[in-house]
Design a protein around this nucleic acid. Structure first.
Lengths: 228, 228
DNA sequence: CCAAAAGTGTTTCCAATACACCCATGC
DNA sequence: GCATGGGTGTATTGGAAACACTTTTGG
């Protein structure tokens, strides 16, 4: 049902509502987060998550999608609400409440429009973050935890992998995010047993060694399953 | 660090920020939720979760605690953030964003000040809810799911149980919430193996049968563990 | 001694783990 | 033919699940 009443004009002190999104990608063997450099004001020189105020004509999810598209140039990717952050001192410029999201970008697409938009936009290694503004370090930490957990009981890895990939590449993604090595035979057995991936019929040929069979995710929608 | 700047006076259209809390208790063999009857306006006759606007001088968590205390008369109980809800049409009276919480009340305390405060405040069986205002049905559903999940991998049941209890009582709480029967011997073995509870040395004597040993939770702080 | 609920162990089964060698290709 | 990474199966173990009888009390 659509909201038919004219919204109330709020002329009293009230917290502002924003969204901030932790955008993950895996490449160069690292879990990366997309950050924007703040150029002036209270947090000059710090880095921050892409975010912005929520408008009157958009839901929280829509606001997060818009920010993703405007500031990071990505659309149609995996996006999920993380939590709301509303400590009094989270933003030194004034009272605000932020609804944090986390999003996943395929490693192959990590260059998409990021550098062109801002010069101050970069993928940073999660293990080695610069100084972050607001409470964004806390948000990234929570997002990282959530990502690691969900990897174990859902198929969200599809959000980080290209359409086609080898099982070795998939395993290496899991290892990068989880931070520990996995047994090759057990990994492949489990992945195949639960039908997480489907063989596409194609192979990738490399110089120097046996060609690898290519797979794609069986489901491209978020699905719960015991992956590991 | 304390917020030293004067907060910005927001004189533009902006979503209002509220909290709503799903307060659970288990008694009479049912999982119950505390609801408040709405007496007038758009949602006349509907029931709603206790909630209210977030003030400028309190964090989201503090706002939830205040509402809990003012509207439900309970303090110092288990409280955890659930998620933020911000669909455009969630409140027909105007644009709002609500940060939902879920809270746990010991069954023995379920009468605490509830009836006295409002006549329109009642514990309702989760399996048989009345018509709810706003998007509160969705919020209750999510909270229920979260409660069921957490029961399996944390000790939060302590928030629902009295100080001392028998293992049969604890099992019956699990069965009520999960909705299916559990094996007595396996349940007791697991509960004891992981050290979830500690024997207090006391027993409860009933007429008509063998006395039951009394236990209390080993930890009264939220702790992650494989309970079931 | 009877009714009522408390309390207690063992076996079975499945899923997670550990582990080592052969295969296909390019050079 | 050799170097490189791809691909496969089995034995072991540990935890989950199934399952029935004895104990203690009050009346």
């Amino acid at each position: 049902m659509k909201n038919t009443k004219k919204p109330i004009l709020s002329c009293v002190e009230a917290p502002r509502v924003a969204t901030d999104t932790v955008i993950f990608a895996v490449f160069d063997g690292c879990l990366k987060v997309l950050l924007i450099r703040i150029g002036k004001g209270e947090y000059d020189g710090c880095w921050a998550l892409p975010g912005g105020l929520v408008r009157m004509d958009e839901s929280l999810d829509e606001a997060a999608e818009r920010v993703l598209s405007q500031k990071a140039g990505v659309e149609g990717i995996y996006l999920e609400q993380l939590a709301a952050f509303g400590d009094l001192n989270r933003d030194r410029r004034g009272r605000s409440v932020s609804v944090a999201y986390f999003a996943l970008v395929r490693g192959e697409d990590h260059l998409l429009r990021t550098i062109e938009y801002y010069s101050g936009i970069e993928w940073k290694d999660v293990r080695n973050l610069p100084k972050l503004a607001f409470d964004h370090r806390k948000i990234v930490k929570l997002a990282e935890e959530r990502l690691r957990n969900k990897l174990g009981y859902s198929n969200i890895a599809y959000g980080l992998m290209p359409k086609e990939f080898t099982l070795t590449e998939l395993q290496s993604l899991y290892e990068t995010i989880l931070g520990n090595p996995l047994d090759k035979r057990n990994f492949r057995k489990k992945i195949k047993d639960i039908g997480l991936v489907t063989h596409t019929g194609n192979v990738r040929r490399t110089e120097r060694s046996r060609p690898a069979r290519l797979y794609s995710f069986t489901h491209r929608k978020p699905t719960m399953m015991d992956v590991l």
